[in-house]
Design a protein around this nucleic acid. Structure first.
Lengths: 215, 215
DNA sequence: AGGCTTATGCCACTGAGTGGCGTTTCGAAA
DNA sequence: TTTCGAAACGCCACTCAGTGGCATAAGCCT
């Protein structure tokens, strides 16, 4: 009872996975711009037309792992039971739960790592990822706006979402920078740390004892 | 102060301005994807090669007004006298000062309006703008990190920067949505409103009877 | 005025992304 | 099992963003 989905769906998923893994490997090895789509498609033995039926751009295939996580996040937000806790805590806990769920496939952690490394060194992937985040968080905003019953002109919901996204990005960067093989546990720890730093960020002031020397 | 710059510099600036204004007009009229670069260049009577010596992409020419503002912001951050005020207040006040300075050229306000309208309806411009913001705020982070003497692993500086950017974007969106002709004064008012909402965003909770929380 | 620098125009080229269309492959009903 | 419709695929031709090279022109400087 493993697969209730059709053979066709499975085959499609297989080529999708093959494209993602091969793309991550090739991009990591020779750089995003050093690999053409023709090359990638030839390696996976798939036509370029098929590639664009699975991904909307060259950047998307490299961002697939994180985008899958955000889609799960969005779905969870739709069905989550809401309590009266601060939205920021809600977002953090949902994010942590989603991370646990994604990490059940242990290959995902490795893929996210390559995904993130490529994002950091490739401007066009960065831009694509930021845009995806913006779209997704706009959808989360819509969902929460409806479910929490807030005034649509209230900018606080948008702001708290941006804070959460910023905290997650900070956590990802710190996680990638860690020595050794980044683990799922380490990532969740970084997420907790980053969210915990938010209140202090608002009141952050210049360090008292520091004096400036440069022109 | 008059123009001390050379004639050559002025001519270059003229073609730059012509490209920006024509691009904003054409894109607004027929959509970003409905205008080819060849068309734009023919209208301004400039070769495509020249276009790419002034702008690095089709998206950049549409984002030029806001990018100019952020560059001025970055320069200001470099030379600003720092006091012990919270960094968030520092960022807000600097942003307001930079807006005043940009608005001295009254054409700028109109350009930003078109810039922002196009950004909202064009995904690729959105992505480009977000990436530019990320790069710029990373530079601001570097500058403030050096000038404030903070631990480089402290995520609070990054977080407070993201909050400021998010507040500015929220202000821009509200400004664009205002009826009538958006003015510079209205924009600064929106900026103040958005920044003021930040502390309450953190503690925002789901509340059917919507109890307001004040800082 | 003459040489130097710098912007520009022109041209050919790569590579991403799209549309059309015929063919294969799977799913499901008969 | 056969057959039929739908979905996925491959192939081909095309548009357009962006780049590199090289020759030319325009401003700058002595």
């Amino acid at each position: 009872m493993a697969t209730q989905i059709s053979l066709r769906e499975r085959k499609k998923q297989q080529t999708r996975d093959a494209l993602v893994d091969t793309a991550l490997a090739l991009f990591t090895e020779r750089g995003f711009d050093g690999v053409t789509l023709d090359e990638l498609c030839e390696t996976v033995e798939v036509s370029k037309r098929t590639f664009f039926r699975n991904f909307s751009s060259k950047e998307e295939v490299a961002s697939a792992p994180l985008e899958a996580m955000w889609r799960l996040f969005l779905d969870t937000m739709e069905t989550l039971p809401l309590d009266r806790a601060p939205v920021l805590d809600l977002l953090r806990d949902t994010l942590l739960a989603v991370l646990d769920q994604m990490a059940e496939d242990e290959r995902w952690v490795g893929r996210v790592r390559l995904n993130q490394r490529l994002t950091e060194r490739t401007p066009s992937i960065t831009a694509h990822g930021l845009h995806f985040c913006a779209r997704t968080s706009a959808e989360v905003e819509t969902t929460l706006h409806r479910r929490l019953g807030l005034d649509s002109r209230d900018p606080r919901l948008r702001l708290v979402l941006e804070m959460a996204v910023a905290a997650f990005h900070a956590a990802l960067r710190a996680w990638i920078a860690e020595p050794g093989r980044p683990s799922h546990a380490a990532l969740t720890a970084e997420v907790r740390t980053a969210f915990a730093a938010i209140p202090a960020a608002i009141t952050l002031s210049a360090a008292p004892s520091t004096r400036e020397v440069s022109p």
